[in-house]
């Protein structure tokens, strides 16, 4: 038998999670509160990009619906984590059977993930028959539908108004745990039988069908799993920011996450990590510069939108110079 290096997920896990853990530890020990908050956002964003990578990276089908699942995770976890008193304040018209319900934070987060996965499971099967531009349009429509429901279902979301009164349960280490856990999950999933079949279907649908791959089925599983991960990320974000409205789960956040996947290279988990770190760094760096400019009143007007401009330029440059992202389909350390 010829000796062949088996495609294993754990060396990459160690190589990617090691530096992230060191970064978290350094910031925890020596960084101020601002830096810690930036890092929490980084790890939540990482969780979200990993959710996107699990589906889009392996199947090659672009999904614009992910941030909708983030919203579902955020609101449904809030309904289960908030105290009855907080609900009475923030959600006046909440269904009475939901008012006394309160579960531990971790359980509420998992419920958030499960709710997102349930919605994905229900609407996903017909969507999975699509690919290319049709999939983009259909998942985009799904994002709009979820957004519209969140705005109008005021019994559980407080409508377009801000939902407030959540406890700030998401600490730095909670976000780190989520980022690392789903990093390992994404790497493992890629090498499972299903992950391999999904990647084959990404490369050639006809050939995949000819060897017995049920493309709609494998895509559907990945779509539901990805929605769970994104729902968890949404739940964590909700308990970090503690007050939010449905506007948080719409186009700006969608483009942020997709730009992370594109810049890093969506076909690999390493690319998702690199993209999340790079984009969060650009985003926070430019925002700092923008604030400094505005405070110093160098210009007679307020500078705004600099972050979006810089991200767009970064994305355009990547699409021109390296269309498959910084890492393409490579996993570190190869």
């Amino acid at each position: 038998m010829h000796h062949l290096k088996s495609t294993s997920w754990w060396p990459t896990s160690l190589l990617l999670s090691g530096p992230l853990l060191v970064l978290a530890l350094v910031v925890y020990l020596f960084g101020g509160e601002v830096l810690q908050r930036i890092l929490i956002v980084l790890f939540i964003n990482l969780t979200m990009v990993l959710g996107l990578q699990i589906f889009m990276g392996n199947s090659g089908v672009v999904s614009f619906a992910q941030i909708g699942f983030m919203g579902i995770g955020a609101y449904s976890s809030a309904l289960f984590s908030m105290s009855p008193q907080a609900k009475a304040m923030a959600l006046r018209n909440l269904y009475s059977f939901l008012v006394p319900v309160q579960v531990p934070f971790v359980v509420a987060v998992i419920i958030g993930g499960i709710m997102a996965a349930l919605v994905a499971a229900l609407v996903g099967y017909p969507l999975m028959r699509l690919s290319g531009a049709a999939a983009v349009i259909a998942t985009f429509a799904l994002l709009i539908i979820v957004h519209t429901v969140l705005i109008n279902w005021s019994e559980v979301t407080n409508g377009p108004r801000t939902l407030f009164g959540l406890e700030a349960y998401t600490t730095l280490w909670v976000s780190v745990a989520s980022g690392i856990l789903f990093l390992i999950l994404a790497l493992w999933f890629k090498e499972t039988r299903l992950g391999l079949q999904l990647r084959a279907s990404r490369e050639d649908e006809a050939a995949a069908a000819s060897i017995g791959i049920n493309i709609v089925w494998v895509r559907w599983i990945a779509f539901v799993l990805a929605a769970f991960v994104t729902g968890v990320a949404g739940a964590l974000w909700a308990h970090f920011i503690t007050s939010f409205s449905p506007l948080a789960f719409y186009l700006p956040q969608t483009f942020l996450i997709i730009s992370m996947a594109i810049i890093g290279g969506s076909a690999s988990v390493s690319g998702a990590v690199v993209g999340a770190v790079a984009v969060t760094a650009i985003f926070e760096g430019v925002r700092g510069i923008e604030n400094a400019i505005n405070i110093s009143t160098v210009f007679p007007f307020t500078v705004s939108g600099l972050t979006e401009v810089c991200l767009s330029i970064a994305m355009i440059l990547i699409l021109i110079l390296r269309p498959s992202g910084i890492l393409g389909s490579r996993e570190l350390p190869t």
């Binding site: 062949l4 990647r199 084959a200 990404r202 490369e203 050939a207 389909s329």
Partner: peptide, 9 residues
């Protein structure tokens, strides 16, 4: 019709 992004194996 090969899966061009995957290895031969």
């Amino acid at each position: 019709k090969l899966f061009r992004g995957l290895t031969v194996l």
